[in-house]
Structures are given as structure tokens and as C-alpha cells.
Nucleic acid binder design. Structure first.
Length: 440
RNA sequence: CGGAGAGUAGCUCAGCCUGGUAGAGCACCACGUUAGGGACGUGGGGGCCGGAGGUUCGAAUCCUCGCUCUCCGACCA
């Protein structure tokens, strides 16, 4: 993409409404525009990152055996009345009436609807286990939206719903999502720690929040240091096999957010030099809820013994739009964003230091064409800005690799390749740069 | 939902107290000089001063009431 043809409204100054670093950087990098409190338009750069994150989540959901669907944003109130949540949810739920005065709501989540879909078609245990997921915009009318996309009212969320015949099966489904989450976040360059979470009236130990450690995190967290560097299962992990050892390895170490923190237990179970007390951002949650929805909604399946039983359910959310902010919180410096390669909006920044100069233009155009042909996503700054402005702009938007081409270097046959993350610069020939970047 | 604050150019803000034809820097357009870490000069465009009512000969400025946004706290992927 040529920058001269792209839409990238960078801001030199920080808009006054932005308090935390990810919000500031997203506004300055032209990723989002606020349209109302907690409601954002996604501009091209931000949209690219959002789609990359969504795709990683999709791939890991699919790998774990979940099946993608798409449910609507607007839902009829009837479903929610069946489960009693229409009254229970409160003013956070955006309620709407259509022209026929029918009650609708903008979905804050989809348990009720997915259970309706399930009960309409699935009658036999033979169809189980089943896990249906979608990635859809949600709306929760937060009293006080803030922190940009980290806590908006409208947000993009992947939510998966598992259905099993019994609690043992539900636990296996839970474990599959747990491991899929470890993999998905890791692929985005995030280090996440699953922490015990509120389980509500169901009880048990089957709810975890996946937390990214960041100074600006909303909640205080406490965990065992060994959890920070525990290896994540690679893509060969067998989701049909027994995942319990992987889950147990983590869950047997102390990890809790401040809501459920037990200081005495923390001190008893974790040696002093292993105690981590930090702040974190929740980017996902896995939750087993049993028959909470299947009983009121009569979502029954016939078991091998011929008896009908309410299906055992769990739900599993990932805050896709929140992740954009969370990744920036975890990966930036004074100059701007530092994208992990897997979610970067472009792979390479190509900076033409003197557009209009025939030799420089020719070298840049040629490299741009070759890198693109090699399958690389290149943002080519072919504008007339001065070098300093170009450097600052590219540092701000944080593409992993920058390649800088100018007349001085070309006289010596050299271009500069810079790593955004380390700042390391290396001079090399055009051919060497092409080879390095096209294959990395 | 309690408390606090802010709405003036695309962005950051001044002007308001003490009413008299709306400003700066950056950004934008034109021309020129420039060119390896956010250049400089000259010229130019851009505002129902958030809205409605009121006071006044005259309101960005004073008064009243909504609206919107932000921040602190209680609540949430």
C-alpha cells in the first residue's frame, strides 16, 4: 500500500480525552475515531489489526473443534424473558422497540439465543459434544465507558458456547477452550495468565479469566511467578486427547484477581520469592455454567439410556476489540506502538527519504514490487514529507520492520533495515535487504 | 449512579472575570528555498464560539435550562 493512496490520519498531538497509553496511541496512529462515548469507528489501520486478531482467534477456535456461526446483534426480548435475564440484566442492556412496538435488545451476550438454536435442532447425545461460536459486535451500556476500546460500550467479542451430555464432558469442552485460549493469546504475542474467577451461583472451580499483565490494568492480580514463563502448547496439541494435565499444571498454582484473592492462601501456597503482585487486563474468560440456560429453556437431549436430560453448557469469551488496546498496553515505547508481527497492520514499512529523486524512487518502487510479490504486506511511504516526519510517523504506527532508502545510502549501494522493537539499525545492499525481508 | 470539570478552526489551546465585527501554534492549500529523526519564508482557505431561551442598542463573554464529552469513585469482555 502506498501511503499517498492510503487513509492514515496521524495526529501529532494527543487528543485531550485520552488518558491511557493505548487510547492515546490508537488515536494518534489514526486507528480509531470516537463517535460517541464508548463507541468507535475503526479506521483502516485499526481495522487491519482487529481483523488479524479476529482471524487468529478463529483459527484457534477451529483447531479446537468449535464451529463458527453468526448470530444477529439484535435479539427479541422473548428469549431473555424465558431465562429471566430480561429483568435481571438491568440498565446495562440496551432495549429497543421496532415499528410494531416489539421489544428488541442489542445483545450483550448470546447464551439465550444459542441455546434456542441448539434446542431447535439437537435432540440426541450423538450430536455431542458441540461447540458453536461467533465473533460479533456486542453492546453493554456501561455507566462509564473509558480507556478507549479497552472499555467501550460497543465491542467486538468472540463468544463460544459448548454443549455436552454431562459434567465430565463439559469439563473436557472447558479444557479445550482453555488450551485454545492459551494458544490464541500466545500467537498474538501476549503472555496471558489464567486466573481463578467468580463462578457465580454454580460454584466449582471452572471459571478462569485470562489476564495480560500491564501497569495500566484495571484489576489487581496475584499469582505464582512460575506461571509467567510456562510454555504454551504448540499446534500439535491433540484437542481430542486428554488436556487435563495441561490445565492442571496451571490451575494448581495460585493465580487470582483481587475480586477472589485470598491473601492467606496466597501466602501459604506461594513461596515469598515466587509471589507476583501486579495489575492486569482481562482479555478472555472461560466459564462453565451447567444447566443454567438449558433448564429454563428446556434444551434437552436424549442420552444413551433413552432419558432426556438438560444439556450441560459453558461459554467462552474473548474481547477482540479490547485486545487491540491490550496488546498496545503490553507493547509500546515513548515513540509509539510496537506491534507483535502476527497482529501488525502491515509487515514492513518502506520509507522513501526523498521522493521525487529519480534513483531513490526507482529503488523504492522496485523493492516495493518485489516484496509485495513475495507476499509481504508493505506500507510504502512515498509521500513528500521530510525524513524526520516519516521516521516519527512510522515509529508511531509500529510496524515490525522499517527499511529506509535515501540518496546518500544509495550512492554507496546501501539501505538501512531497522527493527522497531529493538531499534537496531543495519546497513546492507538492496539485494540483501530484499532477501532478508522477503523470507523472514 | 454519586462527585468534579470541559464544550471556541481537523488537533492542542488562548480570549470570557471587566459585553463592542473571533485569535495563536500545529495541520491544510499555493509558490519558493530545503531535505538522513516531526524544516523555513511569503501568501491563502477554514468557525451558526455545542444547543435553546433570556438580559442588552449590542453576547463567545452575563443569566436560565437541556444536550454532549471527559475525569475521580461504585459496576463490567
Amino acid at each position: 500500500m502506498r501511503l499517498s493512496r492510503f487513509f492514515l490520519p496521524l495526529l501529532r498531538e494527543t487528543p485531550s480525552e485520552a488518558q491511557i497509553v493505548s487510547h492515546r496511541l490508537m488515536l494518534r496512529a489514526g486507528m480509531i475515531r470516537q463517535e460517541a462515548a464508548g463507541i468507535y469507528a475503526w479506521l483502516p489501520l485499526g481495522f487491519r489489526v482487529l481483523k488479524k486478531i479476529e482471524q487468529i482467534v478463529r483459527e484457534e477456535m477451529n483447531r479446537a473443534g468449535a464451529i463458527e456461526i453468526l448470530m444477529p446483534t439484535l435479539q427479541p426480548s422473548d428469549l431473555w424473558k424465558e431465562t429471566g435475564r430480561y429483568d435481571a440484566y438491568g440498565p446495562e442492556m440496551l432495549r429497543i422497540r421496532d415499528r410494531h412496538d416489539r421489544e428488541l435488545l442489542y445483545g450483550p451476550t448470546n447464551e439465550d439465543m444459542v441455546t434456542e438454536i441448539f434446542r431447535a435442532y439437537v435432540k440426541s447425545y450423538k450430536a455431542l459434544p458441540l461447540n458453536l461460536y461467533h465473533t460479533q459486535w456486542k453492546f453493554r451500556d456501561e455507566v462509564r465507558p473509558r480507556f478507549g476500546v479497552m472499555r467501550g460500550r460497543e465491542f467486538l467479542m468472540k463468544d463460544a458456547y459448548s454443549f455436552d451430555l454431562d459434567a465430565a464432558g463439559a469439563r473436557r469442552s472447558y479444557n479445550r477452550m482453555y488450551v485454545a485460549y492459551l494458544r490464541a493469546f500466545s500467537r498474538m504475542g501476549l503472555k496471558t495468565i489464567p486466573m481463578r474467577a467468580e463462578t457465580g451461583p454454580i460454584g466449582g472451580d471452572l471459571s478462569h479469566e485470562f489476564i495480560v499483565l500491564a501497569e495500566t490494568g484495571e484489576s489487581g492480580v496475584f499469582c505464582h511467578r512460575d506461571l509467567l514463563d510456562m510454555p504454551v502448547p504448540d499446534e500439535t496439541v491433540d484437542f481430542d486427547g486428554d488436556l487435563e494435565p495441561i490445565v492442571r499444571q496451571r490451575t494448581e498454582l495460585y493465580a487470582a484477581t483481587e475480586d477472589v484473592h485470598d491473601a492467606a492462601r496466597f501466602e501459604r501456597e506461594v513461596p515469598e520469592d515466587k509471589r507476583v503482585s501486579a495489575r492486569g487486563i482481562e482479555v478472555g474468560q472461560v466459564f462453565y455454567f451447567g444447566t443454567k440456560y438449558s433448564v429454563p429453556m428446556k434444551a434437552l437431549v436424549t442420552g444413551p439410556d433413552g432419558k432426556d436430560v438438560p444439556v450441560e453448557g459453558g461459554s467462552y469469551g474473548i474481547g477482540v476489540s479490547r485486545l487491540v488496546g491490550a496488546i498496545i498496553e503490553a507493547s509500546h515505547d515513548d515513540a509509539g506502538i510496537i506491534w507483535p508481527a502476527a497482529v501488525a497492520p502491515f509487515d514492513i514499512a518502506l520509507i522513501n527519504l526523498k521522493s521525487g529523486d529519480a534513483k531513490t524512487d526507482a529503488a523504492c518502487d522496485d523493492l516495493y514490487a518485489k516484496l509485495t510479490a513475495a507476499g509481504k504486506d508493505v506500507l510504502y511511504d512515498d509521500t513528500n514529507e521530510r525524513p524526520g516526519a516519516k521516521f516519527a510517523g512510522m515509529d508511531l504506527i509500529g510496524l515490525p520492520t522499517q527499511i529506509v532508502i535515501g540518496p546518500h545510502g544509495l550512492e554507496k549501494g546501501l539501505v538501512e533495515v531497522k527493527s522497531r522493537a529493538t531499534g537496531a539499525k543495519e546497513e546492507m545492499s538492496l539485494e540483501a535487504a530484499l532477501k532478508r525481508l522477503a523470507t523472514s
